[in-house]
Design a protein around this nucleic acid. Structure first.
Lengths: 220, 220, 220, 220
DNA sequence: TATGAATGAGCCTTCATTCAT
DNA sequence: CATGAATGAAGGCTCATTCAT
């Protein structure tokens, strides 16, 4: 008990260093691309020297994997945490969760991360890519799907809608739009501003999910 | 007769070389990524030696640019050609065009091409990327948008829908789903099969666009 | 006799081609340097294609050798021809021949030729270089030396002067000065203009060669 | 004790590397020519591997420039240092300084250095070449010129001699002769041995500079 | 343990040379 | 015989990785 508290400085350091490296690596890789990025840039960004990387990671690929793993874990944890807090009807929940996603997707680092994942990791680290999709994306789909299902159960949404397909389609629509925004900026001719994209997407979704003839209300 | 069958060390095919190289380059670049691809692989794929590339292209970057340009031109030409042939109401047109897009997007080379574009070209050749988006993607959006507008004019679609926003959202939804399919395959747990994705996406779109109280039917 | 006159065109061409190539090669090599020059440049300058060079020359080195050999032969022939035409005393002859040399050395192609010889040929083709020196330079020295000796015999130059050493030194002085002029131009600060260099060089030479106590004048 | 004598794969000599590389580069470049020299040869000569060069120099050209700059600086510094130590009349000074120059010029590395400068640098690095000429050659000319002028002021040399022109001519004569010696060796037929060249050159110079009628002595 | 000098495999590019046409 | 497309060895440069300090 006593001995445990007496952690030498360098040991703590050794624990912390990988964190800084992981962060730096992710930042550099997402900005410059995995292959294009030099390990020296990562070291510099982390404030350590090139050689130090090899104390904590086997090689460049290992650094990539661990950095992504780390990020994926964090992202998923965050998402999970924020999930069940919402109260309200299915449409309220849906708006809340999609709005949240859209806002996050508008941040620059989100776009860079996705570019890395879809561009290089998808082909060079397929297992990792799939892991990320399954732990992150698929889970998000599921979430939306569940909300839709709940809505159907409530009678707020029409029962013949394919909850799963629609959830996936809708989230993909937002994801890809966000992705394009990063590369094109707002100005591109013929490109909707973010707010309108979200508004019309959500409008389509809600309208498309509404019961055709709102049973109860029709009679009254 | 027997002796005549001598095999030349190489053949003189100045006319076909550039095209073959362009094709080989695109194939190799989309499969391996631009940076990761060695020029020697391209040469090999085209059945020539490394040096030959430099007779027709200035350098690796030039080869990339021209290969993409070429592809983009071809794609756009194809799309343009097939556009106006469709007859029928807005909903028929919409189904036809989206179905076409979806089928194309299910082909493996489409996915690889997109991965290259969104992964490396977007960051390393931004001008080329934007050109592609503007000539290809934005034009496709426009097409969908116009069909929706026509449907609104006909009374087939509700007038308060944001044609532009919905068009972009919908096409992005399909694009991104197709993209994921390439990497995940059909089997992934929790992943809808292609047909269902398309069906439910189209269903959402049509349902979401329908007039709230279909004028004629209301009276009956 | 009849048959000989009927020389087909291509046969004449074949004879002429090497001449044009030789000239082009020398021009290109002297301008760009032997190693830096591409054979394609030579071909282009000669108005033929790359492959044609190999019909007449074994390889790049052979082309260089033959082009130089050719040039050396021509230069020497020219020099020899113009040598014995001069009449007059030793000092007149000396002025004539050095003036001639200086004027030639001021022409740009002379400088380029020397740069090639002293820069690359001297180390890469030592035998050829030596041949050139012996056939050209040494012969020129000899010529000056002989004129000085003649002057000594006439009593115009002092007898204790080392005719050979002085001849070589003097010609080298002019050669090197000409060489520098090519690279520095006239403007360089602290650099004498060509005319003054020649005038003062010749002045030094003549003055330095004059008998210490000019016989006739001694008596006065 | 025995086990300790382990030979490391390489040694860490950050301080000495640049200097050693500079030296090796100059040696290799002057021997093989700049373009002909492979960077690997330079590395080998310096006892390091190819890649190490790039830690200290940007590229081949940078290495060349810095090696030359370095050499020029050293040469000029040496020359400057040894200048003003000489005492005596103008003729003594002149002999001293020319003798010194001649001896230096007889050393093999001097010749190789000049071949590089005049052969390749003059055309490929004109600015550097001009810098060298101005800092080195022109300054040396000036020195000789000043000595001649001093001699003229003292009455040791005739006043109507063109000090500048003669200084340049004389130094060029020695320079070029030294240059030829390197390539021809002593043996060449019709080529004066070094000592005689210097002796006769100096003799011509002194004799050519002496006052025509040594004023004082004439009257007595 | 951290550093960064040193290594060397790898890849783009050039160009002398060959050879199908 | 002339052409110029094709070859492939060579060399400059980069950077992941190793290792002396």
């Amino acid at each position: 008990m006593l001995a445990k508290a007496k952690k030498p400085k360098w040991e703590r350091k050794a624990e912390e260093r990988p964190g800084a490296l992981l962060e730096a690596a992710l930042d550099v890789f997402t900005r410059q691309g995995y292959r294009a990025a030099r390990l020296e840039s990562v070291a510099e960004a982390a404030g350590v020297s090139k050689g130090t990387i090899y104390r904590y990671f086997e090689n460049k690929e290992d650094l990539l994997k661990r950095a992504l793993q780390d990020k994926v874990d964090v992202k998923i944890a965050h998402a999970e945490a924020a999930l069940q807090e919402i109260r309200g009807g299915a449409d309220v929940k849906l708006r809340y969760i999609l709005d949240r996603y859209w806002k996050r997707a508008m941040e620059p680092d989100w776009g860079r991360f996705h570019r890395l994942m879809f561009g290089e990791i998808a082909s060079e680290q397929p297992l990792l890519f799939r892991f990320w999709i399954e732990k992150g994306t698929v889970r998000a789909w599921k979430l939306i799907e569940d909300i839709i299902r709940a809505g159907q159960a409530e009678g707020a949404f029409r029962k013949d809608a394919d909850a799963q397909g629609i959830a996936q389609f809708a989230l993909s629509g937002l994801t890809h739009q966000a992705y394009l925004k990063m590369h094109l900026g707002q100005r591109g001719s013929g490109v909707c501003p973010p707010d309108r994209i979200f508004a019309s997407s959500f409008d389509l979704l809600i309208t498309g999910l509404k019961p055709k003839t709102p049973a109860g209300k029709n009679h009254d």
